[in-house]
């Protein structure tokens, strides 16, 4: 009945007193502020994607798809082929996963199903803390311990030094192991205990219950854990940089042979982290080629992350970093 159409609700039989309507002052700044913050964040991240896409355009124009399939990178003669770096990234990550995934999942079974409860919490806490060790520290361990050891192990292949794709892969395996263990353990623990008890009541022994009940029911969580770890391995820079050898144009003659793994190589991240990034700015095409690598890496990692989220299911917060694991370095 308020003819003035004011926002305050009018109460005809009890005319509003000033005290009745006090405190009704709007604070639109909370809404406005949250909207602005969301917009800023979106702008920053979409800006990153856009920047990589736009600034890498010249190299796509220059080389076309041979930018992806070319195996030679000589920036002085403007030959840009990213394939050896893509190969290096995939090879290093494959080694890491091949080592860390089975070991990590089996260890998660140990922690979740075999370790007594009072040891489980401290073990899990320690593992989560280890997932937070900075990658530069892992890199230091790689330089001081792993490099020499790998040179001995790989001696039959006569590597030029201990800096090889295999060294980077092994180091990465150690780095992603805590992530895989703790996320897989979460997945296994999320299988209701009643399921296990029902299986045991049917006469299954513990091993059978693990194989037939826990692992199958936790499957999507386990896959998500491995995919998250893969995403981290693909993007890891500093530790890989220190032990991969950073040798350009390492393209294996036979794609599936293992021998090239015992030689130095280059990954997308070690290339981007190197001094060539500084040099490249002088030449728009060279700069575009570097940002093209960044774009490839971003798409690769985003794809793996999306796959992980899709596997884990839309409602699962398991991959939430604040919850159980961080994504310490990439």
């Amino acid at each position: 009945m308020s003819p003035d159409g004011s926002t305050a609700l009018t109460v005809p039989q009890q005319p509003p007193t000033s005290s009745r309507l006090a405190g009704l002052a709007r604070w639109p700044w909370i809404y406005t502020g949250s909207l602005v913050a969301t917009g800023l964040a979106a702008l920053a991240f979409l800006g990153m994607l856009g920047l990589f896409a736009v600034e890498s355009l010249p190299v796509w124009r220059h080389a076309g798809l041979s930018y992806l399939s070319g195996i030679e990178w000589f920036f002085r003669v403007q030959r840009f082929g990213a394939l050896p770096m893509i190969y290096g990234t995939l090879a290093v990550s494959a080694i890491a996963l091949a080592l860390a995934a089975p070991l990590g999942i089996a260890s998660a079974v140990f922690v979740a199903e075999i370790l007594p409860a009072r040891l489980r919490i401290p073990a899990k806490t320690a593992i989560e803390l280890l997932a937070g060790v900075p990658s530069v520290v892992y890199g230091l361990l790689g330089v001081i311990l792993l490099r020499g050891w790998m040179q001995d192990v790989l001696a039959p292949f006569e590597p030029l030094s201990g800096d090889t794709l295999a060294t980077a892969g092994v180091l990465l395996a150690v780095m992603i192991l805590p992530t895989i263990v703790t996320l897989s353990e979460d997945a296994l623990r999320s299988v209701p205990a009643s399921q296990r008890q029902a299986a045991r009541a049917l006469g299954f022994n513990r091993g059978e219950a693990i194989l037939r009940i826990s692992l199958p029911q936790a499957r999507s969580g386990l896959v998500a854990a491995v995919l998250l770890a893969l995403g981290r391995a693909l993007g890891e820079t500093i530790a890989v940089f220190l032990v991969v050898g950073r040798q350009d144009n390492q393209w294996p003659d036979r794609l599936l042979s293992l021998e090239p793994l015992a030689a130095a190589g280059q990954t997308l991240t070690s290339k981007l982290g190197g001094s060539e990034t500084h040099i490249a700015y002088g030449d728009p095409l060279h700069w575009a080629a570097m940002l093209g690598l960044a774009l490839i890496l971003l798409i690769l990692v985003a794809g793996v992350t999306l796959a992980g989220s899709a596997v884990a299911g839309p409602s699962s917060g398991r991959a939430a970093p604040g919850k159980s694991v961080r994504h310490p370095d990439a």
């Binding site: 991240f45 920047l51 982290g273 990034t277 985003a302 992350t305 970093p321 990439a330």
Partner: peptide, 22 residues
């Protein structure tokens, strides 16, 4: 949430590249 997961997975070197460019 999904975008946040993806953003959370962005390799840190890419922030370095972004910073250099911007």
């Amino acid at each position: 949430s999904l975008l946040l997961y993806v953003a959370n997975g962005v390799p840190s070197i890419l922030f370095g590249i972004l910073g250099l460019a911007f």
